[in-house]
């Protein structure tokens, strides 16, 4: 509380509303052998589970599609709603499976200049956003970050899903891009419930979650994906106001876009 008051005096607007946790992935992973081994153990199990789970999810998704097509106009709103809920949970489960696979980090990144618009589009296509959430993508034309394209989309999809889950009553999802001489970054911001300092400190740990229904792999996968691409994750959050998560990537030597 003392520190908070002092920060308020130094920089009223931003520091009053935000607290900052910066997480440089590579030194953290290099210095945390236990974390690395935990992630590898999860990954070994994940590879086998992923295939079996995706087979079952595929059959369920097929059946939902068939019922929607076959019953079509005859469906009443309640039945249609149940099918929508089923499809949503299939997509969420598939994301959990994908996160388990990413945590195994078996595939080396194929890094290049990733078009931000394409990456955001790919990510948004993986995460259904409810109608009550306004999505604003404010990125300049031809903006890019240096990363593996598939990993970047997977990281963004996780962040978008987290933001959506933080706004059960609706809100605003904002995606922005920035760059300086050494880094380019993407920020996913929401107007959701935000995090306390304690939660923020633990966010990104595998299997940490504030939701009793979720095991908490999303931010851990984001950290792994960012780190594999020479990047880092910066989380700023304001309890009750919202959260900004920034993926910062080094620009390549010679840096030109």
């Amino acid at each position: 509380m003392q520190t908070y008051t002092l920060a308020l005096a130094v920089s009223p607007r931003r520091i009053l509303a935000a607290r900052r946790m910066e997480d440089d992935i590579r030194p953290a992973l290099a210095g945390d052998a236990l974390l690395v081994e935990r992630l590898r153990a999860i990954g070994r199990l994940a590879d086998g589970l992923a295939v079996d789970l995706r087979q079952s999810l595929s059959v369920i998704r097929n059946s939902i599609y068939f019922l929607n097509v076959h019953l079509g106009e005859t469906l009443d709103e309640k039945v249609r709603r149940h099918l929508t809920l089923m499809l949503r949970e299939v997509n969420v489960t598939n994301r959990i499976v994908s996160n388990l696979v990413w945590l195994s980090a078996r595939r080396p990144p194929d890094r290049g200049h990733c078009d931000v618009a394409l990456a955001v589009h790919a990510a948004l296509s993986q995460v259904p956003v409810p109608a009550g959430i306004k999505v604003d993508v404010l990125t300049p034309p031809h903006a890019s970050v240096f990363s593996d394209a598939e990993m970047l989309a997977a990281a963004l999809a996780n962040l978008i899903l987290n933001s959506v889950q933080a706004m059960p009553e609706g809100g605003r999802l904002l995606i922005t891009h920035g760059e300086d001489a050494s880094e380019a970054w993407l920020t996913v911001s929401d107007t959701g419930c935000g995090m306390t300092e304690e939660v923020r400190r633990q966010a990104g740990e595998p299997l940490f979650s504030t939701s009793p229904q979720r095991a908490g792999l999303g931010l851990a996968a984001v950290r792994t994906l960012a780190g594999a691409n020479g990047g880092r994750v910066v989380i700023e959050s304001r309890p009750g106001k919202g959260t900004d998560v920034t993926l910062r990537f080094l620009r390549p030597p010679g840096g030109s876009e």
């Binding site: 087979q55 999810l57 595929s58 598939n94």
Partner: peptide, 8 residues
Amino acid sequence: LAKPLDPA
């Protein structure tokens, strides 16, 4: 196409 695939 990756499973779970989009039938569409």
